[in-house]
Design a protein around this nucleic acid. Structure first.
Lengths: 226, 226
DNA sequence: TCTAGCTATTGACCAAGATCAACTTACCGA
DNA sequence: TCGGTAAGTTGATCTTGGTCAATAGCTAGA
């Protein structure tokens, strides 16, 4: 882990993010003054489930996965965060990490002091609002995963994920590049990597072609029928 | 649905709840002035997934389940709320219901105007903090369910639920009464009712005896081994 | 260019839980 | 007290996805 200086590109990442983007620049500046940047190598652990956490984290680049560990050592992902996303903000109030955090790729992470942010949230309604909105959104993402796990088959979950990357408009074919390894997508969707692979294989008959990280959809309507 | 007056017992329910309990009485009084109470019969729908919601809801008595509906009409519970719990507060900021709400038992529900609560949260840091803490807690509950679904078998999930009702202390045997029908517990744990029944049957060999809604645990340590 | 290691795919097998059906138990109202 | 209905249990079968192993493909470094 190495300490870094913030670049103007980093600053842009903050300003265009969900949390910071709705705050006045002066407030953002005040918060960013306190930012401490670190790099993490792939597989580095940021914190463990149950740890006392005194920081809030933000992804400047790379990928972070949150996971819980079962008694038998197996891991289950509960969230994945990419560039521009804040995480572990719930620990400002819960105090302890609800899951472990690991860098799924080499990452640059900014950290902010929880106590200072709590004070700022108490003093500035805009900051409190930003947290409330962020937590509402985060909660919906988790609820989405729970509902999908409970309602959909593996293939339907993959189809749904693909459709969520469909550009707006009426195009029936499109392609996109997976922003991470397939094993990370498998974890996010609550599947074993083999099951993800089989789901892609099943979707091949519905016009989904996988070339490494590139996913080509030849018939969007066929996907929507899953 | 019938409109009701608030009783002193209702007021106590508010004051001892997670959300209201941490607020000054003057703030609680201001919020409760706006409360509108209604009764719902079992199976009454409060709102549907996707509805525009302009209220925040609170359970004074009874039981509310939030569920999502799949394309095939199947339902998956994503949360269950009992007396003293607030729900659909995320719609203050998301605007639309992320799930449908149904009374799982005859219920008395208080409703509060979202716009007024948003204004109050913007004006009063204590109210904003109460929402933030409530959303953090709520998010952890959802993450708990997601992680359990992904990590545990049906029997382990039931064992875990039972252990969460274990009184503090060193007693190795105890009993408690399920606060709702078993079919509601099944939904909450993401199981078919038959699967819940089989899990209880499996746990019989580990000292768990089911008598209607009464669950008797004869060997807590055996349960902890699941 | 080649080799080693990592990622992903495919095959085979097995376990868990859903689904459907039938039966039992419990509760409520007449 | 009796009958009807709802809740819960149990059996059988099927589907889905996990696990383990082997293989293929891809990438990076020498």
């Amino acid at each position: 882990m190495k300490t870094l200086q913030m670049t103007s590109s980093d600053r842009t990442t903050f300003l265009t993010s969900r949390f910071f983007g709705r705050l006045p620049c002066s407030t953002v500046d005040a918060i960013l003054e306190d930012a401490r940047l670190s790099t993490f190598k792939e597989h580095d652990i940021l914190f463990h489930q149950g740890d006392s956490i005194v920081d809030v984290f933000f992804v400047l680049s790379g990928l972070i996965r949150l996971y819980r560990v079962g008694k038998d050592g197996r891991q289950a992902d509960v969230a994945v965060f990419s560039k521009g996303e804040m995480f572990a903000d719930n620990t400002m109030y819960l105090g302890r990490a609800t899951a472990s955090a690991e860098a799924a790729e080499a990452s640059v992470i900014a950290r902010f002091d929880s106590a200072k942010l709590r004070q700022l949230a108490a003093a500035d309604p805009d900051v409190a609002q930003a947290f409330i909105e962020h937590l509402c959104h985060r909660g919906k993402m988790t609820e989405d995963l729970l509902a999908q796990d409970r309602l959909l088959t593996a293939t339907q979950r993959v189809a749904s994920y693909i459709l969520s990357h469909c550009p707006n408009g009426t195009a029936t074919s499109f392609s996109f590049r997976l922003p991470f390894q397939k094993s990370v997508l498998a974890g996010k969707l609550g599947l074993a990597p083999e099951a993800l692979s089989r789901a892609f294989s099943t979707l091949r008959r519905s016009g989904v072609i996988v070339k490494g990280r590139i996913i080509e959809i030849h018939d969007r309507l066929a996907l929507e029928r899953f």
